[in-house]
Design a protein around this nucleic acid. Structure first.
Lengths: 146, 146
DNA sequence: AGGAATTAGTTTCCGTGTAACATATATTAT
DNA sequence: ATAATATATGTTACACGGAAACTAATTCCT
């Protein structure tokens, strides 16, 4: 993929600006990669994330609980769960004890889809080019920056 | 802003996964900051970027040229320029020599808006917490990762 | 000159963040 | 205890942005 500066065809005032643009560029690179991957299964990364959480839960859980467990915050789970319902990958269950609450469970076909995806999951090979130690330093620098 | 791992309330398999999530998280942090800033002027970061390119050009330029000079790739400039036209910040000009081409120029009020924004532009103080040398290392690690 | 390939820009589709909203439950004051 | 208020939960409505399909104009090739 070569050098970043050449890719976006621009010059930088200094390393700090360059680093910031590079973060945005790299994040976009990662999400594009993930989008393409999950699209082959008819999912978005967020939808995949929800399915994994539901499988992990092993029982119907509240929408609110899903929200708490998601890596990226997803402000409208309604829409995401709508899509998963349409595809019969999850079910909604009413919760009489608190009628505001909606429980969600994963269906058989949801579990089957996860099984199909598992072997190729890209999260792991996306960043093979860094050593563990380098990855640690990268993360530390990002933490410091904020 | 404290430690990233705590913020998203999750555990990491290893530093590489952690670094990847941290990149996405940090990029989101940056864009949220920028969105909020430019929103006070009724712009998106991309719209601001276009105005700056037009000011720099000092003459009407092709949409295609704008696209090449943008930091982030913007697949549909039509929509962005629509918005800027609505706000009278730019003008579209037909180009008889090649009727596929549309030229864009910045208006007086576009230039005036840029002048208002300039003093507070956040790109500079967003990343003051890193030294030049650290920023350089960060950028190198990101390059290596891709 | 005529058809294929390329280029420029537009339109359309979809996913997502934000904010306003509706409903249900919890809390507080009297 | 009950009415008024506050909080929690999920939904709906709106705007933005990336990707891809599409249209029109130009260039290339023979």
């Amino acid at each position: 993929m070569g050098d970043f500066a050449k890719d976006i065809n621009s010059k930088f005032e200094n390393n700090r600006i360059k680093a910031m643009l590079n973060i945005l560029y790299t994040a976009n690179y990662i999400t594009s990669y993930q989008n393409d991957f999950f699209k082959t299964y008819g999912l978005s990364p967020q939808q995949y994330n929800i399915l994994r959480i539901l499988r992990g839960a092993k029982e119907p859980i509240k929408v609110q609980t899903i929200k708490e467990r998601m890596v990226e915050r997803a402000p409208n789970l309604t829409r995401l769960t709508d899509k998963l319902c349409d595809k019969k990958l999850i079910n909604r269950i009413a919760f009489p004890e608190d009628r505001r609450v909606v429980l969600i469970e994963i269906t058989k076909s949801g579990l089957a889809l996860l099984d199909k995806i598992k072997p190729n999951n890209p999260s792991h090979n996306l960043i093979d080019k860094l050593t563990e130690e380098e990855a640690g330093r990268l993360s530390d620098l990002l933490d410091k920056m904020r």
